[in-house]
Amino acid sequence: MQGVVKVNSALNMRSGPGSNYGVIGTLRNNDKVEIIKEVDGWYEIRFNGKVGYASKSYITIVN
């Protein structure tokens, strides 16, 4: 499943599904990501070869 990031500035990509996990990357508005699965309001995603987590509130699913 594919998604597009929708933010005003930047979205942190984290090592786990929560804001208490470390930041491993930064996503920008309109970045395209691969959604692997949903975990407690977060998406596990793949972006630029990295796998991490981002809040699903800021990612819109596209077909």
Rank of each mutant, 00 (worst) to 15 (best):
G18W: 01
I61T: 08
D40T: 09
I24P: 01
Y43G: 00
G18Q: 02
G3I: 03
K32L: 14
G49P: 03
L27G: 01
D31V: 06
Y58V: 10
I59G: 01
I35W: 02
I35P: 01
W42I: 01
V62I: 10
Y21W: 12
I45K: 00
L27V: 08
P17G: 02
N8V: 14
N12V: 12
Q2W: 14
Q2T: 12
G18A: 05
A54N: 00
V7L: 06
R14I: 06
V39K: 08
N12I: 12
Y43M: 06
M1Q: 14
Y53P: 00
D40R: 06
P17A: 06
G3M: 03
M13I: 10
I61R: 07
K32C: 05
G3F: 02
N48C: 05
K37M: 07
K37G: 10
G25W: 05
Q2I: 15
G22K: 10
K56Y: 05
V39Y: 12
S15V: 09
I35E: 00
G25R: 05
I36S: 05
G3W: 02
K50C: 05
Y21E: 04
W42K: 00
G18K: 03
L11C: 06
K37P: 00
P17V: 03
S57Y: 11
V7I: 11
V4K: 08
V33L: 06
I61P: 12
N63H: 09
N20P: 03
K6M: 07
N30H: 14
A10W: 09
F47T: 08
Q2H: 15
L27H: 00
M13V: 09
A54C: 05
Y21S: 05
V4T: 10
W42G: 00
P17F: 01
N63F: 03
K32F: 12
N48H: 13
V7K: 10
S19V: 12
G16P: 00
F47N: 05
V23W: 05
V33G: 01
N63W: 02
S15N: 13
G22I: 12
K56P: 07
S15E: 12
V4R: 13
N29W: 08
I35S: 01
G52V: 03
S57N: 15
D40I: 06
R28K: 14
E34V: 04
V39M: 11
N12K: 10
L11N: 04
A54M: 08
S55P: 09
V5I: 09
N29D: 14
K50S: 12
I35Y: 03
V33S: 00
G41K: 08
V33D: 00
I59R: 00
S9V: 10
V62D: 15
I45S: 01
L27W: 01
E34K: 03
V39A: 08
T60I: 12
S19I: 14
P17C: 02
G52H: 01
Y53C: 02
R46Y: 15
G16N: 03
V39R: 06
S19W: 10
F47Y: 12
K50I: 15
G22N: 12
N20H: 14
V5P: 02
G41S: 10
S9I: 11
V5M: 02
G52C: 03
G16V: 01
A10F: 13
G18T: 02
K6W: 03
T26C: 06
E38Q: 08
V7F: 05
